[in-house]
Design a binder for these strands. Structure first.
Lengths: 198, 198
DNA sequence: TGAGTGAAATAACACCGGTTATATAACTGC
DNA sequence: GCAGTTATATAACCGGTGTTATTTCACTCA
């Protein structure tokens, strides 16, 4: 019988290596050789688990969404009111620390690529629909009608995307980043203040 | 004496060709050969006007910002109130027609690239500062204090970026795009409704 | 312990990119 | 019309990429 290796574990290592490379040097730097080296092996091992470069990237994108989704579920725990829960989830979405900043840089790279790659676009659209659904469920109890909830959903999704984009677009290691992170968080909190009363 | 050619005109042709390629197939497709072919000539002509591929791309990014800036100045004309002027400029920023959608796709491609290219990041930061300054001047008369204007600035910039990003991320030729464009415009207008009274 | 299996490494292939150098063409001004 | 200058085309070079094939390795289990 063969060597005992957990393929799921192995794949997640390659995915994490992809994230590191993409966050550091962009999607174009995520070559098979580079990702394999980052994971501590050669392309032979990589191609053993991923037939294509694209399949690796699609998996990396999906895993990034899942990881973020899990974090948001955690953030929702431990909140009492509906308003507090929405705020906790949305704040968790912003790139306010190094880990989430890495995630946003990966997303931004994939969003650009999705414009010209149907497979990545489909994967991205699926995960985005889930994210919108999660938010809608959080918003619904705060609004009178379903239509109002839809409107507020479009509002906060754009707000979070715009704030996250602003932070992610920064050059890495910028000294002013901390200030901007606080300002973005404050902008989001201020918008959500209207729900505190409810 | 040499052949009479307007270098500025020639450069703008290459820039426009770059936009077409980037909007259609992404930044990675904007090779020297492809851009030259799109402009109807060979790489020899291109390298005659741009020493590097990067210098071409930097110029394409700068030109995209200038073109958009000029359009917004035009949009500001013919408005009477401060609130109407702000709304006109912000609506002009959204990708609500094919031309502006192409621009947004170019921007999104460059934003992703800017994360790992210091020169593009610098160019982008400069133009973005100008855009923020323009908006701040439009917002200031609508607010009581400078601090309030700053807060509102962060708000609307994030909103426009988020809405534009949502539209730009769409796969091209999507049938539902028109609906989403209307929803995004409505979301922006609804936010600005608070200034109508002022 | 020794096949036999899958995991991983190595290497070759064909292709395409930016860059650079060289050759050709086109036009201006005397 | 002719020399000179620039604009443009052509082509070669080198490095790097995804993919694929082949080889070597390491472990499991009879």
């Amino acid at each position: 019988m063969p060597k005992a290796v957990d393929p799921i574990q192995k794949r997640s290592e390659f995915v994490a290596a992809s994230w590191d490379v993409i966050a550091a040097d962009g999607l174009k730097a995520a070559t098979l050789r580079r990702v394999a080296a980052e994971a501590g092996c050669t392309t032979g091992a990589l191609t053993h688990y991923y037939t294509d470069r694209r399949s690796l990237l699609v998996d990396a994108l999906r895993a990034a969404h899942y990881q973020a989704g899990a974090r948001m579920m955690d953030a929702a725990k431990g909140t009492s009111s509906h308003g507090a829960r929405l705020q906790a989830v949305l704040l968790e979405a912003l790139p306010l620390d190094a880990a989430r900043m890495r995630e946003w840089r990966v997303w931004l790279a994939f969003w650009a690529e999705s414009m010209t790659d149907a497979e990545l676009a489909k994967e991205n659209a699926r995960r985005y629909a889930e994210w919108r659904q999660l938010l809608e469920d959080l918003i619904r109890p705060l609004m009178r009608t379903r239509a109002e909830a839809k409107r507020e959903l479009a509002y906060v999704v754009a707000l979070v995307d715009g704030l996250g984009l602003r932070l992610a677009r920064h050059v890495s290691n910028d000294r002013m980043l901390g200030d901007e992170q606080r300002e973005c968080a404050a902008t989001l909190v201020r918008h959500l203040a209207r729900f505190e009363a409810a």
